[in-house]
């Protein structure tokens, strides 16, 4: 069984972003693999360790630097990488529908049994690519997954809902998006980082795949959210209760 895992290069989750009228300033900002993609890679590798999967292929779309993100996936344990090169901004211009169409081309060529993605990227916060991809391929989808079991060409997926969890059953091939609690991603060790440098990465361009990646949603402007006015520190509970009652009027 083959696993395809999609990984995205995003602004590191701990960075406090600086907003400009055209977008978020991406110059000299630390970039990392999207945290949900790390969970997706981890799950893919675990499938291989459980001998369910025989090969894990990582794919990333973006500028040259996306190869670093792919190397991270390879160092975690993926077998080889596919890099689809584009200069479009990944948080605004290269959008989920285009990404899903590009990934669908890779799925056609690679024929994986399961495609694993993160549930959302922490830059554009769209949470769409997995659903798009499953729809384009007419595969079953299991989004926000917190547990995956595969037996007899069928998957049993536990997914997080607004009220708790539910379990679904779906045949393979399947598109899965990873929620936070699917697993705890491993760190790449130094020897594995060295080994990852020798693993193959196949580079393609958007033109090679013949997909129209024109942005479907146009950004008119980007602004900072309204800032809250500074609060006060109260010395004790009595003062807090008094303020909540008489100043804020919320209790």
């Amino acid at each position: 069984m083959k696993v395809l895992v999609a990984v995205k290069r995003v602004v590191d989750y701990a960075v406090k972003v600086r907003v400009t009228p055209t977008g978020v300033d991406l110059n000299n900002v630390k970039m990392s693999m999207n945290p949900f993609c790390e969970i997706a890679v981890e799950e893919s590798i675990r499938l291989k360790e459980k001998k369910i999967a025989t090969e894990v292929v990582a794919v990333s779309i973006g500028p040259k630097q996306s190869q670093e993100t792919l190397r991270t996936a390879l160092a975690m344990g993926a077998d080889r990488g596919i890099h689809i090169e584009t200069d479009l901004r990944l948080d605004q211009e290269l959008q989920p529908l285009a990404v899903a169409k590009l990934l669908a081309k890779i799925v056609e060529a690679e024929k994986p049994d399961i495609i694993v993605l993160g549930k959302q990227s922490i830059d554009s916060d769209a949470a769409q690519t997995g659903g798009f991809l499953a729809g384009l391929l007419n595969y079953p989808q299991a989004t926000f997954a917190s547990k995956l079991e595969i037996a007899d060409k069928k998957a049993l997926i536990t997914r997080e809902t607004d009220a708790g969890v539910e379990t679904l059953q779906a045949p393979l091939p399947l598109v899965l998006t990873a929620d936070l609690r699917l697993n705890q991603p491993r760190y790449a060790t130094l020897p594995n980082i060295m080994k990852a440098k020798k693993k193959p990465i196949d580079t393609k361009t958007v033109a090679d795949l013949g997909v129209d990646v024109t942005p479907r949603i146009q950004t008119v402007s980007v602004a900072e959210p309204a800032t809250r006015k500074a609060g006060i520190t109260v010395p004790d509970v009595a003062t807090l209760v008094d303020k909540l009652k008489n100043e804020a009027g919320v209790i």
């Binding site: 605004q92 922490i122 008119v220 959210p225």
Partner: peptide, 11 residues
């Protein structure tokens, strides 16, 4: 976007 740290007007 960005965990609510940027508000985009989109069309």
């Amino acid at each position: 976007m960005y965990a609510g740290n940027a508000i985009a007007t989109v069309t």
